[in-house]
Design a protein around this nucleic acid. Structure first.
Lengths: 153, 153
DNA sequence: ATGTATTTGCAAGAGATTGTCAATACCCTA
DNA sequence: TAGGGTATTGACAATCTCTTGCAAATACAT
């Protein structure tokens, strides 16, 4: 796993905006950096990992940190399943990827596309927006769920 | 506004799955069809419009109907602002579009791209998924918000 | 017209996320 | 490198969106 942000790089980015580097923020970023390619965590997932590591970080701080890092463009916020968000490192090409999600069972497949990245960058630039993340999300029904006929569906 | 789904077409689609056409569902679909291009509603927005029209439809039914229509591929579920989803008609090419969203103020710009639609269709097909919707969401910071220095940001 | 399964409305509930506030701890400056 | 101003944390309450259980109402196939 590539270490995109060292603690000092994170500190520099935070301080530039009048914010501070705390042990909590450092640990949370580190956890995401050690995550296997394509893995993503919900706030609850992350909190449980922290507990397992004997890191006593409150759930509030977890939520606050996730939001902060996402707004900084360091994490990306994913809407893969119903009910809660997932987060993963926002990596540049060629690690940048998109998601194909089954709306029934939430099974997710990742795929890459440089053309999409280009479209996103171009659009943002055209309107003077500062790009943070661009993600194509495909909502679909997976082969298994197409076969199953669950009532209520 | 093009009337993509007549009441009878909606009824046919519902009945094919053992579901029923109710006045509530018909009115809700109609509201989306009469919405100006690019407009989208949250559950709460929709409910207030119904109240304004003297249509006494409960908020529960609004939520249930939105979910149903989205799962049928008639509506698309958008994640544009924090905290709640928005819905709009899921229209085909050339009305199909994507969103550039400011993560600070939620200001949203729409744009079209046929190449993205192609990427989405291709990916879904490759894995045998039945495509419902594909949307590129670009998270960025708009020019105004780049200038303003709101504390906490 | 009738039977039955679906749907609705209401109220209660679930679960994710945020707000409050005192205590703590970064980080800048002297 | 000590001190002070201010961002941040943790605990917990509150909020907010969305879901669900249940009884009554109602599509729709026959």
């Amino acid at each position: 796993m590539v270490n995109l942000y060292s603690a000092s790089a994170l500190k520099a980015e935070l301080n530039a905006k009048g914010w501070r580097l705390t042990p909590q923020r450092e640990i949370i970023l580190q956890i995401f950096q050690e995550l296997p390619q394509g893995d993503h965590l919900s706030a609850e997932d992350l909190h449980q990992r922290l507990v397992a590591l004997d890191q006593d970080i409150s759930l509030s701080t977890v939520y606050r940190t996730l939001k902060l890092l996402a707004r900084m463009g360091i994490l990306r916020q994913l809407e893969l399943a119903e009910g809660h968000k997932h987060y993963e490192l926002n990596q540049p090409h060629p690690y940048h990827h998109h998601h194909l999600v089954c709306v029934k069972c939430s099974k997710t497949i990742e795929f890459k596309s440089t053309s999409i990245l280009n479209v996103g960058a171009k659009q943002a630039q055209e309107y003077g927006y500062k790009l943070l993340d661009c993600q194509l999300t495909i909502h679909a029904i997976c082969p298994e769920c197409q076969r199953s006929l669950i009532p209520g569906w």
